[in-house]
């Protein structure tokens, strides 16, 4: 199991809350996601839900966090197999960039 760092843990917790807003829309029970949770196979979310999650992340963290940029160069198979941890790592890297870290 992938263990997130401190900053990633915070982003993961916020992402978990956003994902629960999405699954709630479908009438599904609450979920507790980890870095290894798969968006499609584990959560049964679809591409349009990733778009909505992207809008929520940009509202929370600013326009430097862009789901469109994150996924632009991925192939369909990568998007279908996307893990929550990949997105969390991307958000952290964008926040580090904005803060001049690294």
């Amino acid at each position: 199991m992938t263990v997130p760092g401190t900053r990633a843990s915070s982003v993961l917790a916020e992402t978990n809350a956003m994902i629960n807003e999405l699954v709630d829309k479908y009438g599904s029970p609450p979920v507790q996601v980890t870095m290894d949770t798969l968006f499609h196979d584990d959560l049964e979310l679809e591409s349009i839900d990733l778009v909505t999650l992207g809008v929520m992340l940009a509202a929370r963290y600013g326009e430097q966090v862009s789901m469109a940029e994150f996924l632009a160069d991925k192939d369909l198979v990568d998007v279908i197999g996307l893990r929550v941890g990949e997105l969390v790592d991307y958000v952290v890297s964008q926040l580090d960039l904005a803060a001049g870290v690294g």
């Binding site: 591409s47 778009v51 789901m67 469109a68 996924l71 632009a72 998007v79």
Partner: peptide
């Protein structure tokens, strides 16, 4: 069918913008 704005948004939005 199963399509939505996601198919364009997730493939073309970033490079075109």
């Amino acid at each position: 069918g199963t399509d939505s704005l996601a198919s364009f948004y997730l493939t073309l939005a970033a490079p075109l913008a």
